Simulated scan of single mutants.
Amino acid sequence: MNQEVLSKLSTEELLKRHTAVKTMVWLLAIGLTGVLLFFIYMSIQDGLTPLLVVPLALSAIIPLNVKNMKTLKKELDSRK
């Protein structure tokens, strides 16, 4: 997120966005872990499946959201 855009938002809006991003990161991490474990189980049962790549590829979203969350937290801390 652009720092200039964040500076125009209210503190309440920043807090709301930080909470939403934090929740989405956790849900995505838990969901991808569950899907990965399921596909590993399916691979053990039926042989190797190319679906194992899907949760690994989608996990690249998590660091981007964590960076976004840290940027929001930094802006919130600068306002205190």
Results as ranks from 00 to 15, higher is better:
38 F>G: 03
24 M>G: 06
46 D>E: 11
41 Y>I: 05
4 E>S: 09
16 K>N: 05
22 K>P: 01
71 T>M: 12
8 K>D: 08
8 K>L: 11
65 N>W: 08
69 M>K: 11
13 E>M: 14
74 K>D: 14
49 T>C: 03
80 K>V: 13
9 L>F: 10
67 K>W: 13
3 Q>M: 06
53 V>L: 13
50 P>R: 04
31 G>I: 07
12 E>I: 05
44 I>S: 09
24 M>F: 15
20 A>C: 03
76 L>V: 03
79 R>Y: 02
53 V>S: 11
76 L>K: 01
73 K>T: 03
14 L>H: 05
30 I>H: 01
64 L>G: 15
27 L>V: 12
25 V>D: 01
67 K>G: 07
22 K>Y: 02
13 E>K: 15
25 V>L: 06
48 L>V: 11
15 L>S: 12
46 D>V: 00
25 V>H: 00
26 W>P: 00
26 W>Q: 08
57 A>S: 08
55 P>W: 05
20 A>F: 15
36 L>T: 07
13 E>Y: 07
37 L>T: 09
49 T>W: 02
3 Q>G: 00
68 N>L: 10
10 S>P: 09
64 L>V: 14
23 T>E: 03
19 T>R: 15
73 K>C: 00
23 T>N: 10
42 M>A: 14
5 V>I: 14
54 V>N: 03
23 T>R: 08
31 G>Q: 06
67 K>S: 06
9 L>W: 10
15 L>I: 02
57 A>D: 01
7 S>I: 07
65 N>R: 03
53 V>D: 02
9 L>Y: 09
76 L>H: 04
55 P>N: 09
47 G>P: 02
23 T>M: 01
36 L>G: 09
28 L>Y: 03
67 K>E: 02
33 T>V: 12
21 V>D: 01
15 L>Q: 13
4 E>I: 07
22 K>W: 00
74 K>R: 11
50 P>I: 08
48 L>T: 04
66 V>R: 12
4 E>F: 08
76 L>F: 07
62 I>D: 11
35 V>R: 01
60 A>Q: 05
43 S>Y: 08
63 P>I: 00
60 A>F: 15
4 E>Q: 13
23 T>P: 00
1 M>K: 06
64 L>I: 14
50 P>K: 04
19 T>D: 07
31 G>M: 06
16 K>A: 04
27 L>W: 05
62 I>C: 07
77 D>F: 06
71 T>C: 07
1 M>V: 07
69 M>H: 11
42 M>Y: 04
50 P>H: 02
20 A>L: 14
36 L>K: 03
4 E>D: 14
59 S>Q: 07
